[in-house]
Computed example of a mutant assay.
Amino acid sequence: MPISPNQGSTGGGFAATLTGTGLAGATVVRFGSKPATITATSPTSVSVVAPSGAGVVDTTVTTPGGTSNPVPFHYVLPPVILDVSPASGPLAGGSTVTVTGRNLTTATSVLFGDTAVTPTVLSDSELTAVSPAHAAGDVALVVTAQGGTATASGTFAFVAAPTVTGFSPVSGLAAGGTLVDITGTALATTTEVTFGSVPATFAVLSDTRVAAVAPSQSPGTVTITLTTTGGSEAAPGGFLYQL
């Protein structure tokens, strides 16, 4: 006599169905010692709303003809979200987001606002989800598992691709160390600044300004590229390294 689903939240309140034979007129369905609320019966099935519980319990059906064999049911703790990284992504979607926490093994979906995606569960404490396409703005991130739902403490931001309008100064010594002020829009989530192919130390000053320290390079002109969680953008013109 199987039960579906065979696991659920410790808080109860979810629907479950037991199937078998001789179930007509079922009077009691118990999850361990607790009775469930019967919502429908037939000769081959009994539908119930499960009570709260913990651990693994025996589920039985009692009819006028007797009590069924026990079927194990697993109570699952609700999921807990401890961290979401990155906390933002591009409007086009496609960003792999890592969620860490507890009780994530049975996760079945991750909601970005009102859009659900199927997660990849890596362990009981970690899963990944690929962000969907979405309009710009902040949305709630919610994980749904057999044990219930959990909402991240912060929001997930869908951010526009950056634009880089300019930088100053436009040249510096080949030895590096020049402080370069980069201006543009949607720069707040900057994750990398490169001079040519060389990463630079940087600080985000605002959504429109990033300060970067030019790394050492051979003399010549290189492109400054700024990467955010919304995408990448090359600055207009080049930065000239001089002896």
Rank of each mutant, 00 (worst) to 15 (best):
Q146S: 15
V164E: 01
F158M: 04
V159Y: 03
L127F: 00
A140I: 11
A175C: 05
T108L: 09
V164A: 08
A92S: 14
T115W: 04
V99A: 03
G172D: 00
S109I: 08
A140E: 15
S125D: 14
T149F: 11
A152R: 09
G94W: 08
T118H: 02
S95E: 15
F112G: 01
T115M: 05
V110E: 03
G176A: 06
A116L: 10
T128H: 06
S109N: 07
P132F: 01
L104S: 04
G113C: 03
Q146A: 15
R102A: 15
T151M: 05
L122K: 13
V143S: 00
A116G: 05
V121C: 03
L111G: 06
T163M: 06
A116W: 12
G148V: 12
L173Y: 11
S123D: 02
G148R: 09
A175M: 03
A145H: 06
V130Q: 02
R102D: 13
D138C: 08
G176R: 02
A160V: 05
A140P: 10
Q146I: 01
T106L: 06
V159R: 04
A174L: 07
P132I: 01
A116Q: 12
E126Y: 06
A129H: 05
T128I: 02
G148M: 14
V142T: 15
G147P: 02
D138T: 11
P162R: 04
A136Q: 13
L104I: 09
G137Q: 06
S153K: 13
T149C: 08
F112M: 01
T105Y: 10
R102I: 09
L111H: 11
A161D: 05
N103A: 09
A152G: 14
T128F: 01
A174W: 01
G93F: 03
V117E: 02
P162C: 04
F156N: 02
T100N: 10
S153P: 13
S153I: 15
L111R: 12
T120G: 07
G154T: 15
L127H: 00
S153T: 15
F112E: 00
A140G: 14
G154Q: 10
T144L: 12
A107E: 08
N103I: 12
A136R: 14
A161Q: 08
T98E: 09
A133V: 07
A107R: 03
D124W: 00
G101W: 05
L104G: 02
T115F: 05
T105M: 07
T96Q: 14
E126R: 15
T165D: 07
T149H: 10
H134A: 07
H134M: 11
T163G: 04
